[in-house]
């Protein structure tokens, strides 16, 4: 019995600490179904409005703006 309890304790002690699964916020999904992770906010030099303005210009000038709904 004692040996059995010892084994149980050893087994429990060997288990790694429980790790929380990383929870991501997602920006959305591309037209081909890839989920894009939202980057952390507020750590850059540019404001959200500047980033949005740059991206809007890029989408127009590259012609890559999505034309269809994201794939499931």
């Amino acid at each position: 019995m004692r040996a059995h309890i010892c084994l149980m304790v050893t087994s429990a002690a060997r288990k790694s600490p429980v790790r929380k699964r990383r929870a991501y916020e997602y920006l959305g999904t591309t037209s081909d179904g890839v989920r894009i992770i939202k980057p952390p906010r507020g750590r850059g030099n540019l404001t959200d409005a500047q980033i949005r303005q740059i991206v809007e210009g890029l989408l127009d000038s590259t012609g890559l703006r999505r034309k269809s709904e994201p794939a499931e």
């Binding site: 920006l27 959305g28 999904t29 591309t30 037209s31 890839v34 894009i36 992770i37 939202k38 980057p39 850059g44 540019l46 980033i51 949005r52 740059i54 991206v55 890029l58 989408l59 890559l64 703006r65 999505r66």
Partner: peptide, 12 residues
């Protein structure tokens, strides 16, 4: 740059 790429890619 990572933010620009992420927002851009999400919209294509």
């Amino acid at each position: 740059f990572r933010s620009i790429v992420s927002v851009f890619v999400e919209a294509i």
